[in-house]
């Protein structure tokens, strides 16, 4: 076999990685969604102190997310809503990070090729 092809060593040392935006988005989305889902349910299971009106106060700080995620609450239903929100936000963020990363890498390689 002639040595016309690059060796793996050459590929690894000279090439720059490209990210798959969709997969990146899905992974970010899933991690974010699951994190919020678990955090919410963890607080529900843990419970909280009883408030002045006899109601337990569960996760008052996490509750603040509802400022951005309309409909979210620290309840089981809220954890499902939160999962959907976090997944969507995570997906968009992950997708955009990968896409922007790829654009920048392409641009840098294009510039390097031109100046070579």
């Amino acid at each position: 076999m002639p040595e016309r092809k690059e060796s793996l060593e050459q590929l690894v040392l000279t090439r720059v990685m490209r990210l798959n935006a969709t997969i990146h988005g899905l992974v970010f989305g899933l991690v974010a969604g699951l994190a919020l889902f678990i955090a919410t349910n963890w607080l529900i299971l843990k419970g909280g102190p009883i408030g002045p009106e006899g109601e337990p106060i569960i996760g008052p700080n996490l509750w603040l997310l509802s400022q951005f995620f309309y409909g979210y609450s620290v309840t089981f239903v809220g954890s499902l809503i939160g999962f959907a929100y976090a997944f969507a936000v995570g997906f968009v963020a992950g997708f955009l990070i990968a896409q922007i990363y790829n654009w920048i890498v392409d641009f840098r390689e294009y510039r390097a090729r031109r100046s070579a």
Binding site: V12, V16, M17, R18, Y101, I104, V105, R108
Partner: peptide
């Protein structure tokens, strides 16, 4: 694809 470098500048910017 798995073992190539991640461009620190590009990833940082993104």
């Amino acid at each position: 694809h798995i073992f190539t470098r991640l461009d620190p500048l590009a990833f940082g910017l993104a």
